[in-house]
C-alpha cells in the first residue's frame, strides 16, 4: 500500500467514523454535517474528472449541481400535488422514490452538460472558464425568473424522498446512502481513469497534438468526460436537495461553482480522494472557524491563498508527497 492509498483509506474511515460516533453520542447535527461532506465530496469527484484528469477548468458546475437538485425538487413536489410533470411527449409523473428520481436527475444534468460542453469546448483556456461560468449564470437567472417552481424563493418539499428498505428520515440511514454513492463514484472514476478513455483524456491534456496523431479527437473525449462529470455532480445535487428538503437558485450560483472547485483543489487536483479530503476539510473549517469568528470566510480565503502559493498539490499532496507523473 502506498502512502497515498493509506491516506485515502484513512479519509474514508474518518468520514464514516465521524458519522458513527455522532450517532452513538446522539449528535444528529454532526451526522448532517458528515452527510453534507459526503455529498460535497461526490460533487468534487465529478468535477475532478474534468478539472483534474482533463485539465479543463470548468467554473460552471453549479449548473449541474442545481439541475440535479431542481429535478429532485420538481419530481417530489409533483408527486405531492398529484399533477404530472409533463404529458407530452409521454406522461411523466412525479415521484418520491430516490431510485426513480436519481436517473432523471442524472439525465437532466447530463443533457445540460452535453449542450453546455458542446459549445464551451469550442473554446479553451481562459475563454473556457468564462464561458462555463456564463452558461451556469444563464441557468441561474432562468431559475430565478421562472415562477413555476418558486423562482427566487426556491422550492420546498418538506419530506425527504424514500429509498426501499431504509428510513431516510433517520440521519444515519440517509448518510449511509450518500456515503455508498460516494464510494460507488470513487470506484467508477478509478476504473475510468485507468481505461483507454481515461488515458486518452489525460494524454489530451498533456499533449494535444500527439493524441490527434494517433487518430483520437480530443473534442469528443473531452465532451464525454464533461458529460460524465456533469452527471455525477447532478446526482450530488439530487442528494443535497434531499438533505435540505429544499432547492433554491443558490444551488446554481457561481459561489457554488467556486466551492465545488475549492473542494477539489483544497484536497488535491487530479487525486482520486482529493475531493473527499477537500470536502471534509471545508465542512470542518466551516463548522469550527464559523464558531470562532463570523468572518471565517476571510480565514478560509487566506488558507486557500497559502495552498495555491505554497502547496499546489493540496492537502493530499502535503501529506502524501508529490505525485510521480
Amino acid at each position: 500500500m502506498t502512502r497515498e492509498a493509506a491516506l485515502n483509506a484513512a479519509l474514508f474511515v474518518a468520514l464514516i467514523g465521524t458519522a458513527l460516533v455522532a450517532q452513538a453520542l446522539g449528535e444528529g447535527f454532526i451526522i448532517t454535517l458528515a452527510t453534507k461532506a459526503a455529498i460535497f465530496a461526490l460533487a468534487g469527484v465529478g468535477l475532478n474528472l474534468v478539472l483534474g484528469y482533463g485539465g479543463l477548468v470548468s467554473f460552471g458546475h453549479a449548473a449541474f449541481f442545481g439541475l440535479g437538485g431542481y429535478a429532485t425538487g420538481i419530481l417530489a413536489s409533483h408527486a405531492m400535488s398529484g399533477v404530472p410533470v409533463a404529458t407530452l411527449p409521454f406522461t411523466l409523473n412525479g415521484s418520491t422514490e430516490m431510485l426513480a428520481i436519481w436517473p432523471l436527475a442524472i439525465a437532466a444534468s447530463g443533457l445540460a452538460a452535453l449542450a453546455i460542453g458542446a459549445l464551451s469546448l469550442r473554446t479553451s483556456g481562459v475563454y473556457f472558464i468564462m464561458v462555463t461560468l456564463a452558461f451556469a449564470q444563464m441557468i441561474y437567472y432562468l431559475a430565478i425568473s421562472w415562477p413555476a417552481y418558486g423562482g427566487e424563493d426556491g422550492l420546498s418539499f418538506y419530506v425527504r424522498n424514500t429509498f426501499p428498505g431504509l428510513n431516510t428520515f433517520d440521519p444515519i440511514q440517509f448518510f449511509a446512502i450518500c456515503a455508498g454513492l460516494l464510494a460507488a463514484a470513487l470506484g467508477l472514476v478509478a476504473v475510468l481513469t485507468r481505461s483507454r478513455f481515461g488515458l486518452a483524456l489525460r494524454a489530451a491534456r498533456q499533449n494535444e497534438s500527439r493524441v490527434v496523431a494517433v487518430g483520437i479527437r480530443p473534442y469528443s473525449i473531452r465532451l464525454l468526460a464533461f458529460m460524465l462529470s456533469g452527471m455525477i455532480v447532478g446526482l450530488a445535487g439530487s442528494l443535497y436537495a434531499d438533505l435540505n428538503r429544499f432547492v433554491s437558485p443558490a444551488m446554481l450560483s457561481w459561489h457554488m461553482s467556486g466551492e465545488i472547485m475549492v473542494f477539489v483543489i483544497l484536497g488535491g487536483v487530479g487525486r482520486l480522494f482529493g475531493p473527499v479530503a477537500g470536502a471534509l476539510a471545508y465542512i470542518a473549517l466551516e463548522h469550527l472557524l464559523g464558531g470562532v469568528s463570523d468572518y471565517w470566510q476571510a480565514l478560509l480565503g487566506l488558507l486557500l491563498l497559502a495552498i495555491v502559493i505554497y502547496a499546489p498539490g493540496g492537502l493530499i499532496g502535503l501529506i502524501a508527497g508529490r505525485r510521480h507523473v
Binding site: F59, M261, L300, G301, L303, L305
Partner: peptide
Amino acid sequence: VLATFALIL
C-alpha cells in the same frame, strides 16, 4: 482562478 477566488473571500 482559485487564488483570485480566495481574494474575493
